[in-house]
Design a protein around this nucleic acid. Structure first.
Lengths: 142, 142, 142, 142
DNA sequence: GTGGTCTAGACCACA
DNA sequence: GTGGTCTAGACCACT
């Protein structure tokens, strides 16, 4: 619990590009409030070591978030979450940004389960029965 | 309800390659039993017209599933679900295959929600409150 | 003898699709041990230039072998022989895989010759008399 | 031994189109002398029944051989091997036609085996040790 | 009318 | 520089 506010969990074999997994996890951490504007992110090098991936990949993720105004780099000091960060996309408030993303994730979950033959009404029960299992092939920080 | 057994819904802007979306929807339809071994899939050309994409893209999806033994094609006649299809991956029975996939989808949903700051206990309530909205930018068959 | 471990020889006019000829030659090179797990294959583009064919055709061959678990690609780096590659098909050992394929090729040779009126007993003599001629219309690497 | 002079052995799953397998077997039978000019071939319908395939497929094989002057159809009477049949391709004598085909088959056999790591010198021994095994998945006449 | 093969070329993702 | 995705279109193989 003393680790960084953004903990990264990468799955290099699930088809989603690694730099995109990193972007998503930073976005989620910001939206959920675990990371606040002004917070400092891990350096590219330290993250690269932790996650055992190419520093370029992290640089690309940070770079894209910077272009979108979500992160800001201060040379010689580090990378910080920008003040306007919570307003991801076209959201007008932090709450709305979080809520949108939740609806989006929820929507594709319900749709996937429908495609697998499960009705929305069956899902709460299914979730209650869910026990976190083994991760397949995952690299985590901390 | 009189439409084809596999209905396709594509989201061209979510980063997942189109041919992979098609593959997934066929797999899910087979796992859920909506499509049975021996069933004929839509022709490449008709699907291409319906989904407004290039026939080669459909052919690629069908082709990968054929290499994996899930589909079988008879040139001049069409593409069919193979007899051994329900045993996707290393599953030893159709039920096990479906169950595995459900756990997999469920797992990443719970994990995503956790990253957005929601605890597992909050999810059933969230789902109950979910109203199906119209998706953003989606192409469907039918 | 200092060339690449897989040398490709295509016959564009024998009815066998080019991408299948490539697949076969990679398989044979693996089965015979000339190419080992972990070895890097020629890049798609360089092979395309060498063989004077479209890069997509090479990509298709590599792609099918990847789906079958025989190759693994690392984008930005290249295409490699997978660790489990020698166990092609249902073979349980590299030796068995090679032996099976040899019997298969041998079987169709004997059968073809029988259809041409030659008995098995005549074949050893025939082979001894065989002088390697120049092939008709062939494209080779190197 | 009382069957037709051309006995057909089809393998629907080896990638070679069925009509091409039929053409090859007729060619081989002619080249080897098992079938002589003037001999009558089985009717399309009877062959279709024997081989359990679509009559169109046989019609196509016969049709192609007719275009090449190897077969001749007499309406109402049947299909016959033409007088000039043994001169397949550009061969100037029946012996030369047979010899060419034998060299061709032999050449690709030696090449395949070389690709599998076997030297020409090892092949006679290999053939002597060969025992005809089970056919995989084959349909034969008679 | 099915699906299969191949080409040409554009643009993207990744190291 | 790697490989990946998609399009457009030509031509072939087969029923």
């Amino acid at each position: 619990m003393a680790g960084p506010a953004v903990s990264f969990t990468l799955n290099p074999a699930n088809g989603v590009p690694i730099y995109r997994q990193i972007i998503q996890q930073i976005e989620y951490a910001i939206l959920s409030g675990r990371v606040q504007p002004g917070d400092r992110l891990p350096t590219i090098r330290s993250l690269a070591v932790d996650l055992k991936i190419n520093p370029n990949t992290i640089a690309r993720a940070y770079g894209e978030l910077e272009i979108r105004g979500i992160l800001a780099t201060q040379v010689g000091s580090g990378t910080y979450v920008s003040d306007k960060a919570p307003l991801l996309g076209e959201a007008v408030s932090a709450e709305e940004g979080l809520s949108r993303k939740i609806q989006e994730v929820l929507g594709s979950f319900v749709q996937d389960m429908k495609a697998l033959g499960l009705d929305k009404a069956e899902l709460p029960e299914l979730i209650r029965g869910y026990r976190e299992g083994e991760a397949d092939d995952v690299q985590k920080t901390e």
